[in-house]
Every structure is written in structure tokens, then in C-alpha cells.
Amino acid sequence: SCPVAPASRSSQEVWESFSQCFTPAVKEVVEFAKSIPGFQMLSQHDQVMLLKSGTFQVLMVRFCSLFEPKERTVTFLNGQTYSLASLRALGMGSLLDAMFDFSEKLGSLGLEQDEMALFMAVVLVSADRSGIVEVGAVEQLQENLIKALRSLITSRRPDDGTLFPKLLLRLPDLRTLNNQHSEKLLAFRID
């Protein structure tokens, strides 16, 4: 909720706190997945595999709204806004740069909240297929969600034929972000 710790906290404690913040966010993605029509019809094994592959990418989309690309600032959950420069000084470098760039591209599309939610569902079911057992079922769900997203976007913007293809082009960006950053190390204290 806040990147700046009281002076009494060691950098180790700050890093533990930062690592912990991912836990509730991941749980929210699991709950979100369960609300996607058709997701719980997949085998439990395949639900787990999609979540393991896709959660980081869904989180990147969710956290976009915290980034202000023009000002290069991030708003944390405590309501405070910090510049990229000050966050870099705390050691939060390359992942933040990549998230700013992605936020700028996604933000420029001007999606409504329901469109973002449906896009996140598409992101999740478009995750890496290795380990999926019933590939056909996952592909059918992906196709249904993409059709729904296309229909929602084009019905609202009948004169803009470029928005939907531009949105789909964000999927490979997310995969790249995932490949580059999901191996970052977190540290959890063992009590």
C-alpha cells in the first residue's frame, strides 16, 4: 500500500511487505476467474493451469489504472502518488518501466470498466497452453469470450474498426511482460 517505509524498517522488512502485497491480489484473480461464465466448467486441473500461467498477466491489466504514463507516476493504495524516479531510487526498476509502457498503450484505447473486465477474462483463458489437458474446451471458452468482447466493443464504437485488433495486440505484450518479469524474486520471512 505504500512504497516508503518508516526509517525504523529495514530494507528486508520493506521487501517482505512488498512480496506480501501480491498474495491478496492473486486471491482476487482466482475469485475473478470463478466468475467468468464457463470457467468452472473446465476441469479443475485446467482451471489451475490457466490461473498459474495467466494470473501475472491479469494483474498487469488490473494494475494499469494505478499508473499515470504522461506524468510517469504511480498511485499506491494509500492514495499517495510517487514519481517513477523516486520509486527507482527504492530499487523498483525494470518491471515498473515495462508496466508504464504497457499502461500507456492500453490506456490509449479508452476502454470502459466492463470492457476491461471482459478483456481480463480473455487474457486469462489465452494464457499458455502447456499442461492443459482438455485443450478443445479451453479454446472454445476463449473463442466465446473473444466473440463477446468483439461484440461489446464494436457495438459501442461502430465507426472504429481498429480498436478491437489493437486490443488483441496487447496479448503478446502481456506474454512478453510475463516472460521477462515473473521470475523476479520475492522474499517471505519464515517465522
Partner: peptide
Amino acid sequence: PKTHRVMTLADHISHIITQDFARNQ
């Protein structure tokens, strides 16, 4: 002295998901 478990963000995500599904079985 404190000891730490170090894991990647990917492994942490996997761990949370596995725990969630096991809890709800």
C-alpha cells in the same frame, strides 16, 4: 536471526492458487 523463503513471483502465484483450490475441495 530471521530466515526467509525466497521464491519467484511465478512460484508464489502458483503456491497461492494451489492452496486456494486445495482449501475449496
